[in-house]
Design a protein around this nucleic acid. Structure first.
Lengths: 204, 204
DNA sequence: GAAATTTTTAATCATTTGATTAAAATATTT
DNA sequence: AAATATTTTAATCAAATGATTAAAAATTTC
């Protein structure tokens, strides 16, 4: 028969729903997302959402955990390398983030908004706290600049790297930049930010 | 009579609603805010909200315009001063922002989230684009570093300044900092960021 | 102080929205 | 191929939510 294996059926219904949920939740946030939006985006019947995932909340939970992992999960392996230099780590982290966020520009605003909506729930679920605090990266920062709180540098690295994606509509308007021009600036920042962090680490 | 002028009546009902709306909208965003939340926060009957402001959307509009002004409106007067040096402007802007955000920590995440929800509507409503682009600040940046796109510096200044408030739950967890300690770091950043931007402007 | 106006309230409406259900369609097992 | 299990659908439910209304209360005007 011709229709034995539907061409698109290689992606399971469950995965279609998750993929649609990733897209819609990330774009609009939990509160502004209607389960019907997700069903429509997936091209599926609304009831399937509850059939496979029980509730909007449960589906969101899954997506949110993925996104937390995506945004923070790859950080620790880089930052806790023992032999890699501080400078090299900054290069790697900044590069990795700009690559990631260029492909997922809504990620940081989504994650940080949802964390704000329920700080204790998600704030705790980031073990990143203890894990990062005891990392070699923090140790290296302390050695290099014992006079400064290491978080001051973390704030600046993350700020310089993430903010262009968080505030993109505003920044793009200020600069009257096309999407292509904006992306070019992001590429440039891959080397710019490490250089600047280097300068910051030196200055007293 | 004892109850001729109710003690709290010096604040009009209309203003009570606006104040409650500011608080709830800023904390939870438009979509997650129910008009009942606002009425309750104001200690008033739900119907008064529509009586004074017609609709949730109309009330939101008012609050949002206020918040846009609060977040971006004070920027231009500082940045377009003709005689003030670049360095001094950075000092002033960073100081003003950290003061503002220490009192209104939810402001940037709120504004940027709502802009993302409808970029063309609010993005355009920030005349900041043209206005800032032609400011003396940008001119000074161009003169100082003709080799760099001025927006690269704007991104970094705003990132370093705003991000600690946008990502506060995460950063506070990473550093296991108390509210007081966190605020102390923000105070420190008032001088730290200008110093760092100075270093960034120099480095080639 | 009576009449008119404005403000406030309680009750209710209409829509939206997350979720459920029973039946139909499809796939799997025997 | 019949029986069974799984997946999908259309219809519907119940609660939440933005908004309205008519009456009551308070205030202002005359």
């Amino acid at each position: 028969m011709a229709k034995k294996k539907p061409v698109e059926a290689d992606v399971s219904t469950e995965e279609k729903i998750k993929e649609a949920a990733r897209k819609v939740f990330t774009q609009k946030g939990f509160a502004a997302t209607r389960t019907r939006d997700i069903a429509e985006e997936a091209g599926l019947n609304l009831a399937l959402l509850n059939y496979y995932f029980r509730s909007k909340q449960a589906l969101f939970e899954i997506v949110m955990m993925e996104k937390l992992q995506q945004l923070f999960g790859n950080l620790y392996p880089i930052l806790d390398e023992e032999i890699t230099t501080l400078e090299r780590k900054v290069e790697m982290v900044v590069h990795a983030y700009i690559e990631l966020l260029s492909a997922n520009p809504d990620l940081p605003l989504f994650v940080l908004s949802e964390i704000r909506a329920d700080p204790e729930r998600f704030g705790q679920r980031i073990q990143a706290g203890k894990i990062l605090r005891d990392s070699y990266f923090i140790k290296q920062l302390r050695e290099r600049r014992p006079d400064m709180h290491p978080i001051q540098f973390v704030m600046s690295i993350m700020g310089m790297t993430l903010f262009p994606f968080i505030g993109r509509p505003v920044l793009q308007a200020i600069g009257s930049l096309s999407a292509k021009e904006y992306q070019a600036l992001m590429e440039e920042r891959k080397t710019l930010i490490p250089k600047w962090i280097g300068a910051i680490l030196k200055v007293k």
